[in-house]
Design a protein around this nucleic acid. Sequence first.
DNA 1: TTCATTTTTGAAACGATTTCAAATTTATAA
DNA 2: TTATAAATTTGAAATCGTTTCAAAAATGAA
Lengths: 148, 148
Amino acid sequence: MDYSIEFLTRRLKSKAIRPSYQRIKVLEYVHQKGGHPTADDIFRALSGDIPSLSKVTVYNTLHTFVKAGLLRVVDIDDGEKRYDVTLADHGHFQCEACGTIFNFRVNIDQVPIEGLERFEITQKNVYFKGLCPNCLQPTANGRKEEAR
Amino acid sequence: MDYSIEFLTRRLKSKAIRPSYQRIKVLEYVHQKGGHPTADDIFRALSGDIPSLSKVTVYNTLHTFVKAGLLRVVDIDDGEKRYDVTLADHGHFQCEACGTIFNFRVNIDQVPIEGLERFEITQKNVYFKGLCPNCLQPTANGRKEEAR
DNA sequence: TTCATTTTTGAAACGATTTCAAATTTATAA
DNA sequence: TTATAAATTTGAAATCGTTTCAAAAATGAA
Ligand SMILES: [Mn+2]
Ligand SMILES: [Mn+2]
Ligand SMILES: [Zn+2]
Ligand SMILES: [Zn+2]
C-alpha cells in the first residue's frame, strides 16, 4: 500500500485537518502497523522519531481523526481505548488469555432486532470474548499456553 | 417478584457466597431497581441504609457476583461499568443524547460469522448507539429535547 | 514583517477502580 | 463458652488512562 507522506497529507487535507508533522506520523503509524493500537502504543512508537512528542498531542490527534472519520474507536478492553483504521463494518474478538484483538466478518444488519423500532441507530458494535487458537493450543507438556 | 431476604440469601448460598448484610442489600438493590446501575449508583442508594458502607465493599461485592454469574457487566459507557441482572442474551443500546441504556432482543447466534472458526467464544456482546425515541421527539419549539 | 489562529507541550487535575493493611465480623474447634 | 482462624468490611492511598489548562511554538493571512 501507498502510505507515503503525500498520500497521508492528501488524506488529512481532504478532511480539512492541517497536516502537521505529528499528525502525519500518527496517521502513518496506524496505517502501517494496522491492528488495534492504544494511544500509548502510538506514543511509545513515535517518541523516538519525535523526541518532543507529548502524549496529549497523541490524544488530541486521535480525537481529531475519530471525529473526522479517519479512525474508529474499539472499546472492548477494560482500561485503554484502541484505534482501528479498518472502517468497514466488522466485529472484534478479544482473547481473554493473551489479550489480542482479532477482526472477524459479521453482517449485523442481517440479524433480526426487536425493541429498537423507534430508535435511530448510528453505530453498531459486536464484541466477542474467549480464547484464540494460539491460546487454545496445548503445549508439549499438555498444559495451555501461558497467559501474558 | 419475590426478592425477599430469604430468596436472596438462598440465591447467594447456592453460589457459595456468604450472605452478609452488605451483599444481600446490593443483590436486593440490583434486582429491585433493575436497569443498568453503576457501582456508584448502588453505593449512593445503599449509603442511607448502611451508613458504614464502603465503596470498596460495593466493588468487592460486584466482582464476587459477576464471577459467580449472578450479574453481568455492561461496558458500553466510557467511564463507569454498569451491572445487569438480566442474564438472558440481549443487546444494549445507549442513547448518545440522554445516556440511557436500553435492552433489545437480538439473536446473535443466527448471524453468519466468518473468521472465528478455530476460536472458542465464551461471551458475545452487541452494543448499539444512537438516539432514543425520547431524544428524537421534537419539542414544541421545534428543537430536539435537551441532552442531559 | 506583523498579527491572529492553530497546534503542541508539560504539569496538574480528574475519576473510576484497585491495592493495602488494619479493624471487624463470622465460622470452627477445643 | 472461649480461643483461634478465616472471611469480610473499611478508609486511605495508589494507580492509571484520560482530560483540562495555560503557556510556548508553529503556521497562515494580511
Ligand atoms: Mn478492527
Ligand atoms: Mn441489559
Ligand atoms: Zn490468545
Ligand atoms: Zn435519549
